[in-house]
Every structure is written in C-alpha cells, then in structure tokens.
Write a protein that binds this DNA or RNA. Structure first.
Lengths: 223, 223
DNA sequence: TCGGGTCTGTCAGCGTTTTGTCATTTTCAA
DNA sequence: TTGAAAATGACAAAACGCTGACAGACCCGA
C-alpha cells in the first residue's frame, strides 16, 4: 500500500513517514509542491497526504491539478489549526478528508485507513510473500502460520523488504531506514542483520543481489 | 464502536469523552459545529452526541443537514435545562433522544446505548479475549467469571489494550492515553502499571513486544 | 481533624536481549 | 582466477523491560 506524502516541514515529514511505515504503508515523502504534484501525477498511490502551504506549488493547486487531470486517489489534507477557510477550499478542491494540525499520529493513520477503505481500496495490514506473512498490526512475522520471533531491528528489516517486495533495495537505503544514526560506510551492520534474520527463518525469503542490495520476491518470481 | 461528540464547552467535552472511553467507546470529540458536521458527514459513526448552541454552525442546523443528506445514525441531543422548545425542534429535526443539562454521566451512557441498540447497532459493552472478560458497563474485568480488583489506572490500561486487541500498542500511546499529564521521556510508569496488572491476573493476557509496545491477543493468535 | 489504607509515580538494581563491531571465512561476478 | 562483496562467529556495550521499595497524594471512616 503506497502513500504519497507532501509536507515541507522536515520534522513533521519524518514523523509521519515513520508512523505510516510502522503502520505498514510504503511512503514516498516529498517536501516540494511541484515535485509532489509530479509524483502524484505519474505514480500510482493508494492515497496521498497533502499539506497546504508548500514551497514550489501551493497545496491547493496541487490538489486541483490532480483532480483536473483525473487522478482520483483519496487525498487527506493537513491544515493549520482553525484555518477553516482552508478546509472548505480543500474540500472544494477535491480533498477526501482533512486533519487539523497538530494531530496525533494514531488519528492520522486511522483517517488514512478510513479514506482508503471508503475509496474502495483495502488498507490491508497484511503482506504475504510465498509462505511468509507479515502482519503490520500485530507487528508479527509468521511462516506457514508459525510466528517467528524477531528483534525490533530484525522486524523492521523484514517489514521494509516485504513492503517493497519485488524491488531491489540497496544496502544504504536499508541502513538509512533502520534509523541508526550511523552513515558509517565501513559497517556491515545490515549484513549481520540479514544473516540473523535468515537464520531465524525456515524459508529463503531474502535474496542477495551482490553489488546492489537485497530483495524479497514471490517464490516463482524472477528478476 | 465509534461515537461523534460535538460540544463546545471544553470541560464538558472532556468529561464526556472520558466517560465514553471508559465505557468502551472510541470518541471523536469536536468543538466546532461546522467541523462536527463535516465529520458526521464523512465518517462512519455508531451514534452522535450533539450539543445545541455551537459556534460555527448551530446544532440544529448540523442535525438537519445530516438528515437531509441521508445520514441516519442515531443522534442524542444535549439541551439546556428547561429549553423545551429546543427539544421539540430537536426531535423534529431528527434527533433520537435528548438529554437536558446538567445530567449524570451514567445516564448519558445509558441513553446512548439505548439509541444505538434501538438503531440496530449493537453497543456491546463486553469484550472477551480468551478467558478474560471486560465489562465496560460495570467497568469490571473478570477471568473465568471471577472478578479481578483493579485500580482505576490499571483498569484503564487493560481496557485500552483489550479494546485495541490484536494491535501492538506503543508505550507512548498508552502513557498518553492514561492521561497522565506527563510526556516524560524517562518514566517507566507504564511498565510498572503493566507489572501490577499482570500480578493481579491469573492468566497471561498482556504480551510484551520488546521495542514496540504491548499487545492483547486471542490465545490462538489470529486477529 | 486524625490515622490508616490505597493509589500512583519514581528510582535503582537486575537479568536478559539486542545490536554494532571486528576478524575471518566464504561466495560470486567479472 | 581473483578481488571485492557478503556471510559468519564471537564479543562487549548498550538498551530494554521487570521488580521491589519507597514516598507523596488522596480518600474515607472514626
């Protein structure tokens, strides 16, 4: 389930991204209005979260343009507290819901799931690859119905790979995503982690693409 | 069971929210009439509690608009003491019941349950997980039919987890929800509380997901 | 008003798990 | 074949959650 997030505040963007990923979504986060618009115009998303008041291109404009071009994925608009006008405009422009700042992350996730569900998409918290099942609500991984006990870091690794299944994920992206504050090039932390996970799994889930990164794929899938 | 509460008085809103949550409802509380209307129009609620005399948009108008657009969830109207006219108008506008201020919280909850039941929705006050039973009406937890004596805080913890069963609840969410006015980073209050509850329960109900939070789950482990 | 009991948050200590690093070996693609 | 990339085993520091003890706040009955 892929979500587009357009929000200029670096801090908020990070927080939301983290929360959504924890909730099992895949997030494309973008700070700039124009770029956000372009992404929404060219990629396929289950929903978008749009902050009004963006650099580059105003949020409302972004939304109107999408709608004008027939992009109909649900959009959740973030507004400043009490800015009632913004909300009205947002709704008029084709927003599906709005959320006044500040908000609680749980609420954001709940609302997002709501508009996705309403739009016909299903905000399924479960990802399945072969015999492996990832339940993002329970934060649990199981193989053939048997839960696998993973440490937080291990879980995050698997979750990230599974949510991005079918795509080669570079080591650097992983190590950045595991939010360890280390960019240390000379660290094989990810490799070690992958090893640990593999030892715990009864099936070969994570494939190595030597020189590129790791990938989780459907069993029959070839690249 | 999700309830929409539209009430401008901050104090009353808080009280009702607390009472309803204690009773096992999930509450969206809103102070502004217009925002309340929007929520009721776009979200799905089991019922709404509506104060007349709101800023933004008058309560009666909100109600009429909902009904005009076919929203038929039951609505409980709060009226000022002796404002007989309001009641008549409220009923005419499509309210299912009214409650004159001031009122007792228990009465509010009872009436709310009544209109929900009448409307076909089931306001089930009982949550069952394995051998554990949470009766939100009596605010009582029992295991194998034997009541467990819990302190208020302990009860809230268990209730919250049980009402969110099948989902990992982060410690932070818990500590926020227990409305302790502390955002204190380094506080192990939740851990202590969990420990106390566990000691009182004859069964393993609360599972720890190290690094993530706590979860209450059906014994077999499917959500 | 006093005294005992309960509730709740803090703290320090403890054992366990987790995680990054390092040295070394293995593997693979060019 | 060969050198870089990845896997592995071992290790130690750090993180995490649990527990018992404690003290202030609060409630209630005498």
């Amino acid at each position: 389930m892929r979500i587009l997030l357009v929000e200029d505040d670096q801090r908020i963007r990070q927080d939301i991204t983290t929360a959504l990923e924890a909730a099992g979504f895949v997030v494309d986060a973008e700070a700039n209005g124009e770029e956000g618009w372009y992404l929404g115009d060219t990629e396929t998303y289950a929903a978008a979260i749009l902050d009004l008041g963006l650099p580059g291109m105003d949020g409302l404009t972004v939304l109107k343009r999408w709608r004008a071009e027939g992009r109909d994925f649900p959009v959740l608009v973030l507004t400043a507290r009490g800015a009632w006008t913004e909300r009205v405009e947002g709704i008029d422009a084709g927003a599906d819901d709005y959320l006044p700042k500040p908000f609680r992350m749980e609420e954001l996730v709940a609302r997002l799931r709501a508009i996705i569900r309403r739009s016909g998409g299903q905000a399924n918290p479960v990802v399945i690859v072969g015999e492996t099942e990832l339940d993002t609500r329970q934060m649990r991984l199981s193989v053939r119905g048997v839960p696998v006990s993973l440490s937080p870091q291990e879980y995050r690794l698997v979750a990230y790979l599974m949510l991005h299944k079918g795509r080669v994920v570079p080591q650097q992206e992983l190590s950045e995503h595991l939010q360890s504050v280390h960019f240390e090039r000379e660290s094989n932390a990810v490799e070690v982690l992958v090893g640990r996970v593999r030892r715990k799994l009864p099936v070969a889930l994570i494939e190595t693409r030597r020189g590129f990164g790791y990938i989780v794929n459907e069993p029959d899938g070839s690249s």
